[in-house]
Amino acid sequence: MQRMALFPGCLVLQRMPQYEKATKRVLTELDVHLENIPHAACCGAPLESFTDRWLHLAAYNLALAERLGRDILTLCGNCTNTLLRAKAALDEPSLRSEVNETLDEIGLRFEGRTTVKHLVELFTGHVEDLREKVTGELSVRVAVTHPCQALRPHEISSFDDPLEPRAMRRIVELTGAEVVDYDAEFDCCGSTLYLADEGLGLEAGRRKLASAAQADVLVDACGNCQLLLERFRPGMGTSAATGRMVVLTLPQVLGLAMGIDPGELGVGPASARELSRRSS
């Protein structure tokens, strides 16, 4: 059994327990056991625009996982990016020493032993296991949207092409679903932009959904993407087609293809019905 420390991040913790639930359920099938990190905090990303102390918060989370002796699994692009950049920055001896002085006050130490993996990277390392576990073919057309911040910059993330990623597509293809191309596939969803300008963020999301309109399902692997493309969709004035498109997270789609009950994956009855209608 592989054990990892789960770092869901603010958004998933607060707004989408379904994503965390589906992740844990599906990874059980792959014999990966996740444990939440007691007393974990924000990755540090929202602080970085204001203060250099973001690095201390990121290092704190890394040190907590290190104390547990676990590598970290992330579900959001932004957390992945921030924790990986912090880890790289802390290679610098004087910075590490400064951060460790602070961590020492709360009985922690950062040694750089914990690795940080996004869910897509973890699944990529378990492709053969996934192939064995997928029992039914999903006869739907799927558009994939990539967790862009987990893939860039390439100096800190190397499991996929940073500009034209393929890893998620290969994972979804295991389900038997037809993965469709669409113009906005590699565009950001706009979720982080929404924080600064709601109208621009929603317009980015609307364009993405409209571009993917030929698909039955849009699949993401990031709390930010799921928030904007699924929860905030009513604010986009989308067309009827994109408005009915089912927006799911990657483990939910994999779980359905494994024959797991939608309820165990946090897939609501309306989405389950729409999926069933589209796949019949």
């Binding site: 625009s49 932004n78 911040q149 860039r152 910059p153 500009l163 950001c188 932009l193 980015a204």
Partner: peptide, 12 residues
Amino acid sequence: WLCSSCWRCQEV
């Protein structure tokens, strides 16, 4: 502040 934090600019 008008940025989606997608890092594409830096990557290219």
